[in-house]
Design a protein around this nucleic acid. Structure first.
Lengths: 97, 97
DNA sequence: TCTGTATATGCCTTGACACGTATATGCTCC
DNA sequence: GGAGCATATACGTGTCAAGGCATATACAGA
């Protein structure tokens, strides 16, 4: 399975994830809101689904896609090691002021 | 300038960043610790430098590389929009238990 | 069952990028 | 200033993924 970092390297996929954060959306809604060709949307959703970022349910002819938290949380976990570093810098800056 | 997300999509670059979080390192130290060919290290460092992830200072024949916070913080900022979504899910889970 | 709508997949082309190898640059010390 | 070490760059190559377009699949409603 591709790393979560490689998945979110693609700007259109990040846009899709941002869109899904408010609520689930159908492929057509994503297509219209992002003004992206439908096959492109479907392909990115496939990548996102296989990497565990989203899941889908069937609603008649439509598929509704929604976010799943785990992969983005893994990215968040990786970033955690740098937070100590950031706060040290901020502390040093504040002491300096 | 390349997006921070594309930069950290590369596993070796993430390894370099993780290595630099403890302290600054020379190219040779990175090369040895990650068992990576020296040109590869230099090339990745160049990409990281041009994207603002690291900066370097000259120490005689060596170059010491150290972390800069901004690009990783931008990634962190992007992740922020999903934190609300995660905590809602955790809350719902906790209520369910 | 036919038509239209929604979504997925296949094929092809193109561009980007990581890697290996070789070589260049720059500094230090004798 | 020559030798050796540390780092950077140049070049050629293979791989892989995104985009465009055509087409297939699936479902709904008359």
């Amino acid at each position: 399975m591709e790393s979560a970092f490689a998945i979110i390297a693609e700007p259109n996929r990040r846009a899709i994830l941002s869109l899904l954060v408010s609520s689930q959306q159908s492929v057509g809604e994503i297509e219209r809101r992002l003004r992206m060709p439908q096959p492109a949307v479907s392909k990115h959703l496939r990548v996102l689904r296989e990497a565990g970022f989203v899941e889908s349910t069937v609603d008649a002819q439509r598929r509704l896609y929604r976010l799943k938290p785990k992969p983005l949380q893994e990215v968040d976990d990786w970033l955690d090691q740098f937070r100590q570093f950031w706060s040290e810098r901020v502390d040093a800056l504040e002491r300096h002021l």
